[in-house]
Design a protein around this nucleic acid. Structure first.
Lengths: 241, 241
DNA sequence: ACTAGAATACTTGTATACAAGTTGAAGTTT
DNA sequence: AAACTTCAACTTGTATACAAGTATTCTAGT
């Protein structure tokens, strides 16, 4: 069995090490509740299931533990999963980070950043046109990541790096679901991002805050409503075919 | 050679796994600049140096990479270390977290928390009386950690968990230096903490903010001045004997 | 002197083996 | 029937072996 069942046609994934592949696979399986909360796993069991050795399994589990998706105990690994409350908390952090970043950003020269952001939005448009949902998700994340990295604050970057993989899964799953039911949503996401760019261009604090809030609430509600209904969750999972 | 040269009389450390021991040892060696920035290491080299196998070395390195103390590259491990700017950034995050926490806290019942905090301050006093600097540092960290955990926000806790080990090293090294030169400083730290408790008791936002700021700037200046002078650094290192 | 290229000595990623400790159930004793 | 023991099947932590890839050095040919 291939490891990355949940990342079907992704070269970037299948070319990385077994450990990384497993890490991503387990992460998305846990978040999409394909592996349920409170499930008890063990290194050996996972290694057997995927027909790999314990070494990459250990590595993946350590990473997922840091992301609070798992709890490593003396005997066994307990799946913690992600609840609605967790998602809200994640957005708390994201808001905290991005507020900090934007405040810094308004004091800095940001011409290059704006060019880069515009490029990303263009890529997002292309992704939609070719109905490449996963690529669209990736660009969405990259948009925010680009803003965060732009202030060159290593510790803020660290927090983001820690949050990113889970965010990525949430966005991908959410987008997969959206892609099936409502293609119009995508253009609203685009608009939100253009609003952020505009606000950053004009360098007006309140505009920026408003633009971010709009984008937040939009995405957040989507993700939350997704997670509230296990039917929708199933649809997102079924995206893999 | 024992692994935990930099944590001399600590049972808690020496009883944990080799991987954890090495992780802590390397962390404090990097932060105290006993291992210099830009040094290139390798798993094998470290394993040989400490006479252990690569397995625990790999684990330790992964952790330290997430803390941005190292950069794992294709060939070799590059030490990044911690600069003055990094320390400032760390305090940015800490301020960000604690502000968020305190805001939440003011809306909540916090009687139990205040009891716990008072207990910790008592422990700090005892530690000073017996000149147990490392214990004092540990309690100092625990004070802040207790506040952070008290709002039961898993993601905030995650950010703290990520930051904690480095903070711990900074505080320990700073305290070790302070312990040598100026015992009076300790009582000021105690006073700062009592101020925080008082502010939390009265539940006045501005009081709390002020109390935290006071404590921040105090510690921050200490740590910074420590790191500015490699002489002082050396003294902190020499504390191990 | 200088470049091409093979040999060598490294690097990480993965598999496997073993040790030590925990859990839980079966069986024995009281 | 209840408690105590023992044993078997797990668990993680660590060591070791091997594979595949990369940097470096040394040699051969010009």
């Amino acid at each position: 069995m291939s490891i990355t069942k949940y990342y079907p046609n992704s070269e970037a994934v299948s070319k990385s090490s077994i450990g990384k592949q497993l890490e991503m696979e387990l992460r998305i399986r846990i978040i999409s509740q394909d592996i349920l909360k409170d499930t008890v796993l063990s290194e050996n069991q996972i290694a057997n299931e995927y027909q790999i050795s314990r070494s990459p399994v250990r590595e993946a589990l350590r990473v997922l533990e840091k992301e609070k998706l798992l709890r490593l105990e003396r005997m066994g690994v307990v799946v913690m999963g992600i609840s609605e409350a967790d998602i809200e908390e994640i957005y708390d952090i994201r808001l905290l980070i991005e507020s900090f970043v934007v405040n810094r950003l308004l004091e800095l020269e940001n011409k290059e950043l704006l060019i880069e952001l515009n490029k990303i939005v263009e890529m997002m448009k292309v992704s939609i046109r070719y109905q490449d949902i996963d690529e669209f998700s990736k660009q969405d994340l990259k948009f925010h990541e680009t803003i965060i990295y732009s202030i060159h604050h290593q510790q803020i970057a660290m927090v983001w790096d820690q949050l990113k993989p889970v965010m990525e899964c949430l966005v991908i799953l959410s987008m997969r679901y959206r892609g099936i039911t409502n293609y119009d949503d995508f253009s609203r996401v685009i608009q939100n991002h253009q609003l952020i760019i505009q606000a950053l261009t004009e360098k007006k604090t309140d505009l920026v805050e408003a633009a971010f809030d709009k984008n937040f609430n939009d995405v957040q509600n989507k993700v939350e409503s997704l997670w509230t209904s296990s039917d929708m969750l199933k649809k997102a999972r079924d995206y893999i075919g």
